[in-house]
Amino acid sequence: MKLAFILAYKNLIGAGLRTWLNVGILAFTFILILFYNGLLDGWNQQAKLASIEWEYGYGELRATNYDPYDPFSIQDGHQSYKPEDFNMLTPILIRQASIYPHGRMLSISLKGIPHDQEQLKLPTTFLNPSQGEIPVIIGKRMAAAAKLTEGEEVLLRWRDKHGTFDALPVTIVKVFDSDVGSIDSGQMWIGLAQLQEMTGFKDEATYFVASKNYTHQERNGWNFIPQETLLEDINKLIASKKISGSIMYLLLLAIALLAIFDTQVLSVFRRQKEIGTYIAMGMTRLQVVGLFTVEGSMYSLLAMLFGALVGIPILSFLAVKGISFPEVTQGMGVTMAERIFPVFSLQLIAGTMLLLIISATIVSFLPAKKIANMNPVEALKGKLQ
């Protein structure tokens, strides 16, 4: 085996430019696979962490008649509760409302949350009544859509539990910046006690956000949605992106493997006398096949070495500095940070290396197996059987 590696290495180096072209495209494919999958893994981790910190917590306890995908369920989607029986849970009440910024009307979801909660990263401390008569906070997307700024007043209209309309001016005390668009677009946050008083829904909530130490117990009128279920959409999105992206780098890999296959076919054809000499000197056909297979698989080893020399500085820099995305992507309803930091795990690197080695070995073996049927005498004459 050692002799096979030495001969294979000398043959590859002797091939010159042809070898380095094959190695170059394999190395490029290697770096591209690592970069793309690392980017998606980084996006996945950041999106999950942001969703947990800003929106989902460690699960949601929803009122039975509330469906977050059905806006018509908001009207009746609430249940009464006893605060002392709902420990480790942050209550949130949702009501439909309208605001009138600069003479326009916008329909919004008005969400009430305790100003002293610490479960979510929402800056709810600004909702303390001491901040203003009716303080509210909004996200940067909502602020851009409504053209509102911090300190500005806007007229808010809502319905109480009897269906009666009421309206009061509210003050924008904070415009927060979050990567999670689903807690921002078309929404306004207000103190829970304030909203319950305004609507008459005393000690009622639409859903609760669970803390890390929460242990679920069956409760009448409430459905618990675990964190894994809440994050399913993100997982499915990332999985679909990986599948679509794999088409691109598999095409590049196929081109590189085709080049290796062609090179090996040409080697078997042009090196018939060499093959015959090996057999005449006592090497078995299987050993000669192994030699040519090792020679082809060494393309992948050289490609990974070259890819490491070029890719490690580039990928390390991107992992530390991140990749900036335009702000237009922030309004697509997808949890995406303005800067994504790729994650290159050992599993990803080892899996990619294994893919290249196995693929290169297979395409090298296919033309090399023809050697097993060669007549050594004919081979020495330079003629295939």
Rank of each mutant, 00 (worst) to 15 (best):
D85C: 15
D85T: 14
F86E: 12
F86Q: 00
N87T: 15
N87S: 13
N87W: 00
N87G: 10
M88I: 12
L89R: 06
T90L: 05
P91I: 07
I92D: 02
L93S: 07
L93I: 13
L93W: 04
I94W: 03
I94T: 13
I94A: 06
R95L: 07
R95K: 15
Q96K: 15
Q96S: 13
S98D: 10
S98C: 10
Y100C: 06
P101S: 08
H102F: 08
H102K: 15
R104A: 13
M105K: 15
M105W: 06
M105S: 06
L106C: 08
L106V: 15
S109N: 14
L110C: 07
K111I: 00
G112R: 01
I113V: 15
I113Y: 00
I113P: 01
P114N: 11
H115C: 05
D116C: 03
D116H: 08
Q117W: 01
Q117I: 00
Q117N: 09
E118G: 11
E118K: 08
E118A: 12
L120P: 01
K121G: 01
K121I: 00
P123T: 05
P123S: 14
P123I: 01
T124Y: 02
T124S: 09
T125P: 01
T125V: 09
F126V: 12
L127C: 02
N128Y: 06
N128P: 10
P129C: 12
P129F: 12
P129E: 04
S130G: 14
G132S: 10
I134K: 05
P135Y: 02
P135V: 03
V136Q: 02
I137M: 09
I138K: 01
I138A: 00
G139V: 08
K140E: 11
K140A: 10
R141K: 08
R141H: 05
M142Q: 11
A143M: 09
A143C: 09
A143N: 04
A144R: 08
A144H: 04
A146R: 05
K147R: 12
L148G: 05
L148N: 04
T149W: 07
G151E: 12
G151K: 07
G151N: 00
E152G: 11
E152Y: 05
E153Y: 11
V154A: 13
L155E: 11
L155S: 08
L155Y: 09
L156Q: 03
L156M: 10
L156T: 06
R157L: 08
R157A: 15
W158I: 07
W158E: 05
W158N: 04
R159F: 04
R159P: 04
R159L: 12
R159E: 08
D160L: 06
G163R: 11
T164N: 08
T164Q: 14
F165G: 12
A167D: 06
V170M: 05
V170K: 03
T171G: 08
I172Q: 02
K174H: 09
F176S: 03
F176W: 13
F176H: 12
